[in-house]
Amino acid sequence: MSSHLPPHYTPALLHRYLSHFNRDPSNLNVIDHDAVGYATVEERAARAKKYNEVAYDYYDLVSPLYEQGWGQRFHYTPIFPGKSIADSMTAYEHEFARIARLKPGMKVVDLGAWHVKRGTQLTKEAGLEGKVTLIEGNFLRLPFEDESFDAAYSVESLCYAPEPAEVYREIKRVLKPGAPFTFHDFAMTEKFDENKTEHAKIRNWVEFGNGIVKMPWVPDMRRGVLSAGFELLAEEDMAGRSKAAPWYYGPAGDVSWAWRVPGWDDFFRVVKMSPFFLFIANSIYRVLILFGFAPPETLTLMDTMLYCCRSVAIGGKMGIFTPMYVFTCRKPIRDKKGDGSVEQKHGQKKDELKMA
Rank of each mutant, 00 (worst) to 15 (best):
Q72P: 08
F80I: 01
V30Q: 09
V30R: 08
S26H: 08
P81R: 06
F80C: 02
H33L: 13
Y51S: 07
S26D: 14
G69Q: 14
I79G: 00
D57L: 11
Q72D: 11
K49W: 10
I79M: 11
R44C: 02
Y66C: 11
A45I: 09
T77W: 11
G69S: 11
V54F: 05
G82F: 08
L61D: 07
S63F: 13
D34K: 05
K49N: 12
Y51I: 03
D32M: 01
A46Y: 09
I79A: 04
P25I: 06
Y56L: 06
K50T: 14
A45Y: 04
Y76S: 13
H75A: 08
R73K: 07
L65C: 10
G69E: 13
E67W: 04
N52L: 15
E42P: 07
A48K: 03
I79L: 15
A45W: 08
Q68G: 04
Y56I: 08
G37I: 08
T77E: 13
K49S: 10
Y38S: 11
F80A: 06
Q68L: 13
R47M: 01
E53D: 15
E42K: 10
L61W: 13
Y58D: 01
I79V: 15
K49M: 09
P64E: 07
T40M: 02
I31R: 01
A48T: 02
P64A: 07
Y51W: 15
R73S: 11
D34H: 13
V30W: 13
Y58I: 04
I79R: 02
L28T: 01
V36M: 08
V62F: 12
D32R: 02
Q72S: 14
Q72M: 07
Y56A: 14
G71P: 10
D60F: 09
E43P: 05
G82I: 11
N29M: 13
D60C: 02
K50V: 13
T40K: 06
G71M: 14
Q72T: 14
K83P: 06
Y51T: 00
K83Y: 09
Y58L: 01
V41S: 05
T40S: 15
A39T: 04
I79E: 03
V54W: 02
L65M: 10
S26N: 04
V30K: 06
A48I: 05
L65P: 00
G82P: 01
P81N: 10
D60T: 10
Y51Q: 05
P25G: 07
L28H: 05
G82W: 09
Y76T: 07
K83A: 12
E67M: 08
S26E: 15
Y56C: 03
F74D: 00
L28P: 02
A46W: 05
D32T: 03
R47G: 00
A46S: 11
G71I: 06
N52Q: 11
Y66S: 08
A55D: 12
V54A: 06
R47A: 03
I31N: 01
R44N: 04
E42C: 13
P25F: 13
D34Q: 12
Q68W: 13
E53W: 09
D32V: 02
P64W: 14
S26M: 05
Y51N: 00
K50C: 09
T40R: 00
G69T: 11
N52D: 08
A46N: 13
S26Y: 09
E53L: 05
V30E: 10
A39N: 01
E53N: 05
L65D: 12
N27S: 12
